[in-house]
């Protein structure tokens, strides 16, 4: 095996294992928020995008409607479309292979692929496929483990699962707070959602913050 291939494989595997392990938090949180084990596993198999999955279970768990949950998850999934735009000309695939490539187009597979750019197009493709498939396998296995574990727990608050979900969201947003502007936006949206929570139906305060982001993005 050439050095480049083994580096790519190492990067992909380490990302797959660490990211896949978060699946345990998702599976547990999904069950804690009222989803069945089957539904939790289907979300990981079919939706397969961490932030979107946490969002839909978070919104429904907070008493929001299915539409609010789907809308919030979908707004977070828009970035996967942008990753697809980046990856498509580099992968050059069609038919069934394109369907599989689309399903594993997520933060991690795109990031590892772009990280291999100095090593050439072949390393980029390998990085994408190894990471995408690796995360998919581990994410789904760990989701099942987490869901079964939470089902066996009973009172999830006694195990801190009610805090694991907001901590997971915080961990997802933290790396994006790269400057003062991003921090102010984050705090403003958090305060807005809290203030609106007792006033409007559950789920709406969260979606409304996306429109704040859109308006600010258009004006900035």
């Amino acid at each position: 095996m050439s050095k480049v291939v083994s580096t790519t494989l190492r990067d992909s595997l380490s990302v797959s294992l660490t990211v896949g392990a978060y699946g345990i938090a998702f599976g547990a949180a999904a069950v804690a928020n009222g989803f069945t084990v089957l539904q939790s596993c289907l979300l990981s198999l079919l939706t397969f995008s961490g932030a979107s999955q946490f969002a839909v279970i978070g919104v429904l768990g907070a008493g929001g409607s299915a539409i609010s949950g789907i809308a919030t998850a979908s707004l977070l999934g828009v970035r996967n479309a942008l990753y697809g735009v980046i990856m498509a000309p580099r992968l050059k695939v069609s038919g069934l292979t394109r369907i599989v490539a689309a399903q594993i187009t997520i933060d991690e597979s795109t990031a590892v692929a772009l990280g291999q750019e100095p090593h050439g197009i072949d390393a980029m493709r390998k990085g994408f496929w190894y990471t995408g498939i690796g995360v998919f396998v581990f994410w789904n296995l760990f989701t099942l483990a987490g869901a079964l574990g939470a089902q066996a727990m009973g009172d999830i608050r006694a195990f801190g699962l009610d805090s694991a979900v907001p901590a997971a969201f915080l961990g997802l947003v933290w790396p994006r707070l790269t400057g003062k502007f991003e921090c102010i936006l984050a705090i403003a949206c958090a305060l807005f959602a809290i203030v609106m929570t007792p006033i409007v139906p559950a789920g709406l305060p969260i979606i409304a913050t996306a429109f704040i982001a859109i308006v600010i993005g258009l004006k900035r």
């Binding site: 008493g63 608050r157 009610d162 997802l172 707070l177 959602a193 982001a213 600010i216």
Partner: peptide, 30 residues
């Protein structure tokens, strides 16, 4: 816009998941 949307939604989710239950605000172990 794509860079800002996740910041807005995830921050709102942190807040709502930490300080509310159904439509009521509350402070607890979270």
């Amino acid at each position: 816009i794509n860079a800002l949307i996740p910041i807005a939604l995830l921050s709102a989710l942190v807040a709502v998941q930490s300080f509310s239950e159904k439509s009521k605000l509350m402070i607890d172990q979270r």
